[in-house]
């Protein structure tokens, strides 16, 4: 296992895609932080670093998907995975080494994104929340990364076609982001709405009416649970300063990471390799 990890990290160091994605993650998050901070300063908008720092966290799923699918796709593309199995490495060892190296790389992308996001601090100052809360939020991002990596590693390990695997991972990431965003928006619907009526005296609010788009219980609890369960849901909550129970989120991510890896290993062990 140590040998496999040593070999995989050796390959990671020479992987052009990894360095390109790292540079892009750093540059884009730095630009985004600078832009948000500069806009807030220019338009005198009340903003703090806490509010904008996790803005890009939902999009990280896309970066994890692209990297994992292409990096592990090369194992099948060149048939290199056979080189490990024929010399007696077990499939479990190969799978776990793949997961570890992808987790390491994805955490590196996350770290660089977080570092880049600090450019917003030039305009907005430091975090206003306590160190404990910020630490929990950062840890939550780490757990989300672990969970999403497990899902994408499973997909890449079971799909031998690199192009198909990459497209599948991208679609899955988009689906997870859009699905979570949809749930979040539905949950944001108010229970009552009132129409604005324009009169000669100006605009007045009409009588309150029940909102037909409001999700009532018990569906509301299910949706809220789903939002906490999905790593992309947690990321959206975090970006909107709404992650009230980060520990629960982390436990959900841990469950996905463990379940994804276990399921992935079991399926990978049964897979015939060509």
């Amino acid at each position: 296992m140590i040998n496999l990890l040593s070999a995989q990290f050796y390959r990671l160091r020479r992987d052009g895609l990894f360095w390109a994605l790292s540079a892009a993650a750093l540059a884009l998050s730095a630009f985004n932080g600078w832009r948000v901070g500069a806009d807030a300063a220019l338009y005198k908008v009340q903003a703090s670093l806490d509010k904008v720092y996790f803005d890009v966290s939902p999009m990280m799923a896309l970066a994890y998907a692209v990297f994992t699918a292409l990096f592990l796709g090369a194992e099948y593309g060149g048939g290199a995975i056979r080189g490990k199995l024929t010399v007696g490495k077990t499939r479990t060892q190969v799978y776990l080494a793949n997961y570890c190296v992808c987790l390491g790389a994805n955490l590196c992308l996350l770290l660089l994104t977080m570092l880049g996001g600090l450019t917003a601090a030039l305009y907005l100052g430091g975090f206003t929340a306590g160190a404990g809360k910020v630490t929990l939020e950062i840890l939550s991002c780490v757990f989300q990364c672990a969970a999403l990596t497990a899902v994408f590693v499973a997909l890449a390990s079971l799909c031998t076609n690199r192009a198909l695997g990459s497209a599948g991972a991208l679609l899955l990431a988009l689906g997870l982001i859009l699905g979570a965003s949809l749930i979040y928006n539905v949950l944001q619907e108010p229970d009552y709405t009132s129409e604005m009526i324009i009169t000669i005296d100006g605009a007045v609010m009409g009588p309150k009416e029940p909102n037909p788009h409001y999700v009532a219980e018990p569906l509301r609890t299910i949706f809220r649970g789903l939002l906490y369960f999905l790593p992309t849901g947690q990321a959206i909550l975090l970006a909107n300063q709404g992650l009230a129970h980060p520990i629960w989120g982390m436990l959900c991510s841990l469950a996905i990471a463990l379940g994804g890896n276990l399921g992935g290993i079991l399926a990978f062990r049964r897979k015939d390799l060509k």
């Binding site: 390959r11 992987d15 090369a74 593309g77 060149g78 048939g79 290199a80 995975i81 080189g83 007696g88």
Partner: peptide, 18 residues
């Protein structure tokens, strides 16, 4: 025992980008 085997089955198992 497989540690004592070297193999090239179908295509050589290589990383093209290395």
């Amino acid at each position: 025992a497989r540690r004592r085997i070297g193999a090239v089955v179908e295509e050589p198992a290589v990383y093209p980008e290395l």
